[in-house]
Amino acid sequence: MAHVTYRIVEHDGGWAYKAGETFSETFASHDEARAAAVRAAREQRAPDESAVIEYADDNGDWVTERADGHDRPATDVEG
């Protein structure tokens, strides 16, 4: 099973969450960025629903694929 860690980091004059090398939008506070990361992590774990997902691969290219609802990554939030 895949694992995704969302890390809260300072970014572009504010705070963001980062998964791999990809940053979220910038938030005014650490708490806002953390809350957004928790929402993103929860959405990634949503069971029993197939969905179209998008993510940046190791080369920074965006990939769109259909994910089986039974094949969700484990997630956590650090920071």
Rank of each mutant, 00 (worst) to 15 (best):
A46F: 07
W15R: 08
A41G: 09
T5Y: 02
G79H: 06
A74L: 15
A56G: 07
D58V: 11
P47I: 13
E25R: 11
Y55D: 03
E49L: 11
Q44L: 13
V63G: 07
A74K: 15
E21C: 08
R7S: 06
V63F: 07
V77D: 00
Y55C: 04
I8S: 02
E78K: 14
R42T: 08
T22A: 03
A41Q: 06
D71H: 04
A74Q: 15
D57E: 10
Y17A: 00
E65S: 05
G20F: 10
E49K: 12
R7H: 08
R72T: 13
E25Y: 04
V77N: 00
P47W: 15
S29H: 05
P73V: 06
P47D: 15
G79D: 02
V38I: 10
V63S: 08
Y55G: 05
A35Q: 01
K18D: 00
D48P: 07
V52I: 14
G60I: 13
A51Q: 08
K18C: 04
D31C: 08
T5Q: 08
A51G: 13
T64G: 13
D12A: 11
A2W: 10
D71C: 05
S50I: 06
A51L: 12
D61A: 12
V77R: 00
A35P: 01
R34E: 00
E10R: 13
H70A: 15
G69R: 09
R34M: 01
D31H: 05
S29P: 06
M1F: 14
D68F: 02
R42S: 06
K18Y: 01
G20V: 09
